[in-house]
Design a binder for these strands. Structure first.
Lengths: 205, 205
DNA sequence: GACATTATTTCGTACTCCTAAATAATTATA
DNA sequence: TATAATTATTTAGGAGTACGAAATAATGTC
């Protein structure tokens, strides 16, 4: 009955399962290869991208652990490595001295810019699929990610636009923070709305 | 332009890319969790499944390295760990003493039987998708795997039925090996046709 | 002020992963 | 048939990944 038995690989479900497994393996392989070309490990590359794109409040050891799907101890070690390489800085949060915020150094910002095309060739491969398959693949992956998210296997970070807690132009008289987040009940500066947030919940269609 | 920038995540292609990335992360996370429940690392669990289902000729250090997508040195270390745990045996191949064949011990065979349902809950999640999405997802993943395969990011192991080199009943008078493989040009015993082979190439539709 | 909670770090252990070099067996070449 | 190239694996060394448990320090609660 197991989808990993080749004999059961006649059912579409089992074939898809094995396909996704191979896809995952290939993606990780590609990730390692590309990161290595920049002198980084896969986790280090992901951490740099996280620090570029996550909203300020989650750029901490704990936030990084959530994003990498690892224990805080591991995230602390990843931060150690990046700090040794001079790509990030640790800084206690003034408001709560237990929290360590992580910030890219100029060298780190430069490195992550060179790193952004990490999966471009996979995106190019996606583009070769017929449009109907692209659309179906999008629906299916999003449905699966929701399942994995509910099972706690992955934390989804997304930006505000499209989030059900986002109130665009709730403060029209405040040019520095015209929008509003109903989740944390706080005004949002414009640039922050383009950053990733783990509290994101999509608006229902 | 990068699909990893949240601002570009408005295009279906970029959304799919990020979805696949999360899917991959979730799958690896689940794999680690389930393997750990059996006292194994992810690589060790994959190695045991490989030794159960791969055809005899590839059950070697090199074959394992191909399957795991790692260097032979790493595969040798994985074999070390499994040997220490008494789950596999190393044995030089009589015909070529350089080659080390790997075989499950009774304990290893027992362990891998308990391990086969490793991704069953992901398969269950797949089953919740509407049938049209299931079909499209199958097509799309297979197309993507082909791309990754050609780029060398993954080696596809499949069993004979469906392979273009498979000649069923080519030796009707030989009850021990009625089939034939045109790739290695050798007769195939019936049980072997249900095992996975890295030389698999699908028949054209 | 005592106590629980939280975020992070440190420690110890096991595993992953690579490259480069060493070893041994086989195959090719001269 | 010696010698050389090739192949499969192992060993060694180094960086990284990952965890649980214990330690530390800051914050919140009663």
């Amino acid at each position: 009955m197991s989808g990993l038995d080749p004999r059961s690989r006649t059912t579409p479900l089992a074939q898809t399962l094995v396909g996704l497994y191979r896809l995952s393996q290939g993606l990780q392989h590609r990730l390692r290869e590309r990161a290595q070309a920049h002198g980084l490990s896969p986790a280090q590359a992901q951490a740099l991208l996280f620090l570029k794109y996550a909203r300020p409040g989650v750029r901490t050891i704990g936030g990084l652990a959530q994003r990498l799907g690892c224990a805080p101890a591991t995230a602390s070690e990843v931060a150690d490595a990046l700090e040794r390489k001079g790509l990030i800085r640790r800084q206690p949060l003034p408001a709560d001295q237990r929290v360590i915020t992580l910030a890219l150094t100029p060298a780190g910002a430069h490195k992550v810019n060179a790193l952004e095309d990490l999966l471009d060739d996979l995106e190019a491969a996606l583009a070769t699929l017929p449009p109907t398959q692209q659309e179906a693949l999008l629906q299916a992956t999003q449905a699966l990610v929701r399942v994995l998210q509910q099972a706690g296997h992955v934390v989804v970070y997304e930006m505000c636009w499209g989030c059900q807690f986002f109130r665009p132009n709730a403060h029209p008289n405040d040019p520095t923070a015209p929008h509003h987040c109903a989740f944390v009940d706080a005004p949002l500066p414009e640039p922050n709305t383009y950053l990733e947030c783990p509290d994101f919940i999509p608006r229902s269609p």
